[in-house]
Design a binder for these strands. Structure first.
Lengths: 219, 219, 219, 219
DNA sequence: TATGAATGAGCATTCATTCAT
DNA sequence: CATGAATGAATGCTCATTCAT
């Protein structure tokens, strides 16, 4: 990835470290204040590096944002659990998946906030970052969908596929919505409670769908 | 509120008209590009009024944003249906409420987008607008909660109150989440479908809760 | 031209005056140091106006240069004498024309220097100013050519036209060359002496051409 | 001068080659865009060497310019023909001299352009390069003067000296002027035609001066 | 009720230059 | 001999804001 095979000289290692500090400062500031609200001089102050150095590492503010998004996405996707790590029983699996989602929101809040802020603020301005954000969202949705399909299969049979897609989208809506509410006023929003309700809601829906299917089969 | 009882002179009417144009331009621009990304000169260009005039009507950019939020909120709340306008039967009522919510998202997308963008982008910077936004969100939630209570009452009895609050919050999460998804990625997001699934989900939850209550009573 | 028909308010008059000061400062600085060598902050310092004001009056450094060239050209062309102001006798006329040229170099040295510096320095960068400069040079040459035709007519008859063009170009070469030499090292260059020699040279050429023509006629 | 007597090691040869590439890139860029308009990074890009290498070879941008001028001058002076290479008959000699001058303009246009651009642009800023340029111009003028004296001697006797200086200066004026005109406006400027007219002009002047001298002697 | 002109702080970016390797 | 990384001053330009008219 970013690290090279050969041993880095002290100077080069310093360069890598500088780059990291710039990316981190930018990610934090832009998540809080948006792209336009984050000045290069603010990034310079927060990262401790002179503005010239920022331009040595990244060719423009736009590209810097692009790099922040790309690398953040990579790290975030790696942090997600794959289907192989799920418990075998369906109930436990649902729990695990939603726990993972909630955990992700709690562990990478800054980065996920950044994705939303940037996507909203720069929709018509910066196609590159937006494309990257869309790709990421799609990937996340596909992972959840895959899990849903596995979970719903035993209960719903061949109808599992259709519902899995719907459920995955729905899960993301609740996740995004709760996440935003949490960031707008943390005091009156309980992320875990939201996820608990969502689990109950999905279970109820699945049960209802299964019942519909059975009654259809009975006739 | 903004309109005065007595007849306005031509001069005053012109002033009102200018004010309106500035507010509209600001709302549109800030919803698209955020607060920091919207310059006074851009507002001047879009509204057709010189920047000096903007400062005649509003004393600072910050206060201009405040006015945009306040007036937008007022107009939005007025557009929501009250409990008196609901059909008597519960199923029809749920339908009506969710239809109203979906309709609101579709008719005031720019303004609702603005609320979210500003709330996220300026959380730590501008307490005044943020407070106004929080108040608005709270009000909206309370209205939905009230409706939910009316709807759930016949089925759940005295447990209706607890669930109404949870359900209202959940409804807003889905609404916000779907709305954002729709703005990030209009092609793969279907607002109406999201609301349809939410209705089924809420109904399933309510039914399940009712069943729980009954089984508790049976014992 | 630049002045308006109606009376200017004090404020507007100040604006005109500011514009003038910016143009003058720019003309002087760019003539000495070239376009790239002249910073907006240097113009600000020299003109006494803040850099923001420069951008209120001119939309970019490029356009500011354009305005300096355009206005300078206008003033310079107005300072040139027309054919009607020449003495009737040929010898006196030649003298008058060259005197005018030399006078022009001495009275507008800064502006003419600017034209040359900009033309050399920015050949491939700024087509607008270069076009303006070329147009000016062409106009000047045409004026001189016209005068030459009038002067050479009595001596050379219908061959006057051909020679007039050549002589005009030649005159400008000497003028430019002497002017540049004067600006590179003023101590060893005598503008007036150069013009004196040019006059003798042109007279000698004209006489020679007349002799050729006569000898051709005699045969 | 630049080439060393002893065999260079591969390493040294590489250094010499790098130095050459930097000098060439600088000369070309500065001739086109002037000193201030040429950045070290542009030189680095054009020469293919990193900016650090430029500072290894030359201690500053100023000194780099100095080196470009010095070496260019040296090469240019070497390319000029000496008096020993002239044909014996006066007419042929004049022709040869002017041909050499015109050829020089055509073969070293970039370098001669550089001299003029730098001399004009940096008159008050950089005494070192300017002095070098003045010295070069003086040398060129003296060579031409020397040739003129040889040529005019047979015709004008002891008055040859006075005129030779005047004629040499005049020749340079026309050369510079035509050269500049050619660079500002290549389409409407014919260098060779200018030199042809100059030759006729000088011949006419010389003949006239001879006639004056004779008539003075007759009395 | 408006607005044209101005202002200086701040913006993103490039500059000439340095230096450890 | 050469260079990748860094640095902070300076660049052209935009910003929010002011104010005389």
């Amino acid at each position: 990835m970013t690290t090279d095979a050969r041993k880095l000289t002290r100077r080069e290692a310093l360069g890598v470290e500088s780059r990291r500090r710039i990316l981190d400062a930018t990610s934090a500031l832009m998540a809080e204040r948006g792209f336009a609200g984050t000045s290069i001089s603010a990034i310079s102050k927060r990262s401790g590096l002179p503005s010239g150095s920022i331009y040595w590492h990244f060719e423009s503010k736009e590209r810097l944002l692009g790099a922040v998004v790309e690398e953040g996405v990579e790290r975030w996707l790696e942090s997600l659990p794959g289907p192989e790590s799920l418990p075998a029983d369906p109930t436990g699996a649902v729990e695990a998946v939603l726990d993972a989602a909630a955990g992700s929101l709690e562990e990478h809040p800054q980065f996920l906030r950044l994705l939303i802020v940037i996507a909203l603020e720069r929709r018509e301005i910066d196609p590159a970052s937006l494309a990257s954000i869309r790709r990421t969202r799609l990937l996340a949705r596909q992972r959840i969908e895959e899990l849903m399909r596995v979970l719903l299969g035993p209960v719903l049979g061949d109808r599992a596929g259709d519902l899995a897609a719907e459920f995955a989208a729905f899960t993301l809506y609740v996740a995004d919505g709760a996440f935003i509410a949490h960031h707008i006023d943390p005091d009156t929003t309980d992320l875990r409670a939201a996820f608990h309700l969502m689990r109950r809601s999905l279970t109820a829906l699945a049960r209802e769908s299964a019942a519909e299917k059975d009654s259809a089969n009975d006739r």
